[in-house]
Amino acid sequence: MHFGGNSRFPARLIRTVSFALGTSLLVAGCQTSSLDASMGMESGKTRSGGVAGDDLSVGKAHFRDGNYGLAEAHFRKAVELQPDDAEAWLGLAATYDQLGRFDLADRAYEELLGLAGRRPRIINNIGYSHLLRGDRKRARELLMEANAALPGDPVVQANLALLNKS
């Protein structure tokens, strides 16, 4: 699915969403922060480097560049090589969202919740996923849950602002 020319997803929304994902991707790691630091993971269920870590890094780079098909391939390989890598599952879920494959995004989010638990940043991403689908009611519920746990968080606030504009 191509979002750039779709009137349902105007260019301004895409830029805002890209910024939000760029600053948050995934808050769990699109930037340099790790899932441990951004989600308070104590369990060690994150990447351990090696080939899976390489695919994770390449997947993040492709995601940042908007190459979602390539990002998906690398995130998928990372979770195949290391199925307990929550950060890779988060990247895969967000990538499926961008590709409009919400059925696969739901599966990836389900795996992620099983690994990392119901963390506010994950709930924020799932809420954003529902916003992309046009499910405003569910998006609001999830984003409000994330907002209650992370009051004033700029990414959650940006997603709520997008919801209120749509």
Rank of each mutant, 00 (worst) to 15 (best):
G66S: 07
V58H: 06
G59S: 01
V155C: 12
F9V: 07
A161R: 08
N124H: 14
A20V: 13
R64E: 02
L143A: 02
P151A: 02
G91S: 06
A52I: 05
M41K: 03
A94Y: 12
H130N: 11
L163Y: 14
D103M: 02
E42G: 10
R138K: 11
D84V: 10
E80I: 04
D84I: 02
W89Y: 10
D106E: 02
G66C: 02
G5W: 09
G134A: 01
A148V: 06
D103K: 02
I122V: 09
L35A: 09
L132T: 14
T32N: 15
L56P: 12
G5K: 11
F9P: 14
S24W: 03
A108N: 02
N124R: 06
H74A: 00
A94T: 15
S38E: 11
D106Q: 01
D36G: 07
L113M: 08
G50P: 11
D106S: 04
M41H: 10
G53K: 03
P151Y: 07
L104P: 10
D103P: 10
N6P: 12
D55P: 13
R133I: 02
Q31Y: 07
R121P: 15
R138G: 12
I126L: 01
R101K: 07
F9A: 05
D65K: 00
L70F: 03
D36H: 06
G29F: 00
L90Q: 14
L162N: 14
A105C: 01
A148C: 02
A37C: 13
L113A: 12
M1A: 08
A93F: 08
D36R: 08
R133G: 03
W89V: 08
Q31E: 11
L25W: 13
G49T: 07
L115G: 04
G53V: 05
F63S: 00
R12W: 14
Y96A: 04
E72N: 01
V155Q: 12
A28W: 11
L113W: 14
K137G: 11
N125I: 07
T46L: 04
S7I: 13
A61H: 03
G29S: 01
V51W: 14
L21Y: 13
I123H: 11
C30R: 01
H62W: 00
A11Q: 14
F63D: 01
V51M: 12
E42Q: 15
E80H: 12
E145N: 08
T32I: 14
H2W: 13
L99E: 10
F9R: 03
K77S: 06
R12F: 13
K45F: 09
F9Y: 15
A108H: 07
D135V: 07
N164P: 15
G69C: 01
T32P: 15
L13V: 12
T16R: 12
G44Q: 05
H74C: 00
E110Q: 07
R138V: 14
G100K: 00
K165I: 10
F3V: 11
S38Y: 12
T23L: 04
A148S: 10
A52D: 06
T32G: 10
Y128P: 05
A11W: 13
A105V: 08
P120N: 09
K77L: 04
F19L: 13
E87T: 05
G114E: 11
R118G: 05
Y96F: 07
R133M: 03
F102T: 12
G40C: 06
A158G: 05
P151M: 03
M39G: 14
A11N: 11
R121E: 15
L21A: 05
L56M: 12
F63C: 03
A93Y: 09
A158T: 15
